[in-house]
Computed example of a mutant assay.
Amino acid sequence: MGYQVKAQHQALPLKSVFRIARGAKTQADVVVVTLSDGEHTGWAEAVPYARYQESVQSVLTQIEQVAEKLTHFDGTVSAANGLIDTLPAGAARNALDCALWDLQAKQQGKSVADMLSLKEPVPCITAQTLSIDSPKAMAEAAKALGHPPMIKVKLDNQDIVTKMLAIHQASPDSKFIVDANEGWSIHDLKACCDSLKELNVVLIEQPLPAGDDAELLNYSSPIPLCADESCHTREELEYLKNRYDVVNIKLDKTGGLTEAFLLAQEAQSMGFEIMLGCMVGSSLAMAPISLLTDCAKFVDLDGPLLIKTDVKNGFDIIEGIMQPLNSALWGSANSRVTV
């Protein structure tokens, strides 16, 4: 049984400029993959990320290399998954892995949640993200969100407390996740942590550069620290112990739902809390990881709110509350490919 694989680049314009510590962008460049057995078709979306030496072209090339083998493949689904797993953890493997899960749901006539023995998702709080700007502009952006329960704030190491004070005053009842995207030093972290805790900051994401965080071993942070760029798969968990309290699981880092599911299980067994995160993309990119919300203390899947036009049957996110995955989008016998 061979598989037909198609992959294409889509440029998704953003509602506004999105700035983090390492740069800014005005569109999300994603790769959409369809995987067909001739009768059923699964699909998925991945986001190539330059921080991990990925581009749209490099991801398309990786997918093409596996697609050639899948075209002439004559084996079990498990063996097909093994073929996909020969790719490194990243966007290409994510797209193929999640498309295969969607295809299996249609072949077997049941949901991916049932296949993994997961609880059916229920509405949950998702953080809504503010990109880096002036204190005044960030406060105005926070106010415009309408006081959601959780706001994620992108911050470099400039005016950290000043910006958070302005944001907190604009949305005093919200809790905050601060994401430094590797942009701080240990001095920055120590200098601002106590003040940030007074401003309802409940989590700090990746303050120091990945691989350059040994100083966290000797630091008892008053705010839990989350590993993002430092955590891709289960292989990093032992290294992360005593440095971080939380791991941020993203499909484009793990290489798909298969590894994300296993990473969540092993991380919890080692005492880590779970955060579910995303790159900037459509609801299709969020769909597989949304099945794991039951195990997560923090959810940050607001990518669809940052783009101008979402896919059909996308997530409803209203006042910071994210509704469960629509079965017509992905992961069930009823999901429909709308490329």
Rank of each mutant, 00 (worst) to 15 (best):
D97N: 04
I204G: 10
P149K: 10
N242W: 12
F261G: 01
L60K: 07
E64K: 08
A95E: 02
V66A: 02
N94S: 15
H9F: 04
V339N: 14
M138S: 14
Q265S: 14
C231G: 12
K241D: 06
V59S: 07
P148R: 05
Q65Y: 10
K163I: 12
S269H: 12
A89M: 10
I84G: 00
L83T: 00
Q65W: 12
Q65P: 01
S283W: 03
L100Y: 01
H147F: 07
V122R: 13
Q4R: 05
L284M: 06
K15R: 13
T254C: 15
K308A: 11
H187F: 12
Q158H: 14
L291M: 02
E120L: 05
Y219Q: 15
L196A: 02
N313G: 07
S327P: 07
D212A: 13
K152G: 03
V32A: 04
Y244E: 14
I160S: 06
G331V: 08
I63H: 04
L263R: 09
G183E: 09
P207C: 08
H72Q: 10
A166P: 11
V337G: 00
L263G: 14
M1A: 04
K119A: 12
A191C: 03
K154H: 09
L292S: 02
A105Q: 08
A227G: 11
F298E: 01
L145C: 09
P148W: 00
A91H: 13
M322I: 05
L306C: 14
T293E: 03
Y219P: 13
D97W: 05
S185N: 05
L87N: 10
S290A: 04
E45S: 06
S16N: 08
H168I: 09
M322Q: 12
P222C: 14
V59N: 09
F18K: 04
I167P: 03
T76V: 00
S269N: 10
L83E: 00
D294F: 03
K110Y: 15
Q323F: 07
I274Y: 00
I186G: 11
I177L: 05
V311H: 08
R19E: 09
D302I: 11
L305Q: 15
V77C: 01
T86I: 02
Q10Y: 03
L262C: 06
A44R: 00
K241F: 13
Q8D: 02
N326G: 14
A137E: 12
A95P: 04
R336S: 15
C278D: 04
S221E: 11
R234N: 06
I223S: 04
S78Q: 03
E64P: 06
L189P: 06
K106Q: 15
K110T: 15
A285R: 03
K143F: 12
A296N: 13
D97S: 06
D300V: 15
C192T: 12
V202A: 09
I132V: 12
Q62E: 15
P135H: 11
T61E: 13
L100I: 00
A260L: 08
D102N: 11
L257V: 07
E68D: 09
S117H: 06
D37Y: 07
S327H: 14
A214P: 08
M1Q: 05
L262N: 09
P135Q: 13
L225E: 07
P135Y: 11
V311D: 11
R51P: 02
Y3G: 01
P13E: 02
N218K: 14
E198R: 06
T254I: 04
N326W: 02
I160V: 13
E68W: 07
L292F: 09
V161F: 13
I20T: 08
V17F: 05
K250N: 11
